[in-house]
Design a binder for these strands. Sequence first.
DNA 1: GTTCTTTGCTTCGAGTTCGAAGCAACTGAC
DNA 2: GTCAGTTGCTTCGAACTCGAAGCAAAGAAC
Lengths: 162, 162
Amino acid sequence: MSPSLDPVQLGAYFDLIEVTSLLRHAVEQQLKEAGDISYVQFQLLARLGDSPTGSHRMTDLADGVVYSRSGLTYQAGLLEKAGLVERTTSPDDERSVTVTITDAGRALLAKVLPGHVEVVSGLLFEPLSRDDVKALAGLLAPVREHMRATPPRSAAPRRRKG
Amino acid sequence: MSPSLDPVQLGAYFDLIEVTSLLRHAVEQQLKEAGDISYVQFQLLARLGDSPTGSHRMTDLADGVVYSRSGLTYQAGLLEKAGLVERTTSPDDERSVTVTITDAGRALLAKVLPGHVEVVSGLLFEPLSRDDVKALAGLLAPVREHMRATPPRSAAPRRRKG
DNA sequence: GTTCTTTGCTTCGAGTTCGAAGCAACTGAC
DNA sequence: GTCAGTTGCTTCGAACTCGAAGCAAAGAAC
């Protein structure tokens, strides 16, 4: 393995970090103005709204948005207090908490979404042709899969029982 | 303007967010283990190390890593306390603070870099061919340029009314 | 020169984030 | 059944982040 990334890799890496940072900042700004919610909260509502049932388990939500469990507990508490979400313990597993989006949550999502789309379109997709976007998606999808499949490095230094 | 992004755009957008989130978490983990520094601190040291003079102004650093000014003051303080960086006021502009990486800073950077490269290679570039990386870089570069050029929406500087 | 405005950085307070520790519910081995 | 281990979520403490407010130096207008 090389001790360094080649210049093309380095450029891609840096641009990736910078592009998402800038995009995230812009989106956060818009979400705050349009609906007074953070990016995390928006992501959570969006995931819930996308679900056929309008609900998810806490853990699945946390994994979905790449977020810590304790952080999710905190944010879910805020969303619940704001009436955008409801938390109920699952009947089949008393430990599990199901989070469900409320009508108010859906309304806020609907209110905020157009501006969100506008920002993403204007910043991320403006300089990209239709084919460019297709190519980008085609490149990122396998990377995403690979990352999802790769276990966290330090999480499994344990041997199987032997 | 469309009320929604088309499916391909949506996929590219989601994958972009998820990929960088996962990558960032992995990198943060590695940096903490290898040198007990955060990602922001690493980015700062890397930028300083890359500079021909080994130094930058505070503002340029903050802009470079897409970070708030106050946050940078805090991190620069930590880095200085750890002896990885020095802060000096510029002679030509008394307001300006120049941050310079120390030998200890360079040493830490050198110590941490190989593992960092390994994580990025293994997670981000593993599923991508050489041409893929070239294509990715070619797609992201113009987006980065566009974002840099596009002024924050609604961040109009306070002007005199009129 | 004086005054108004902008720029560069820091301080402050409020809110957010994480990991570790804690607790209750499920699972498996016996 | 019991007991150990795992899982799902929350609580806690410490650290980080941001924007607003503050201050001093630099620049512009006159």
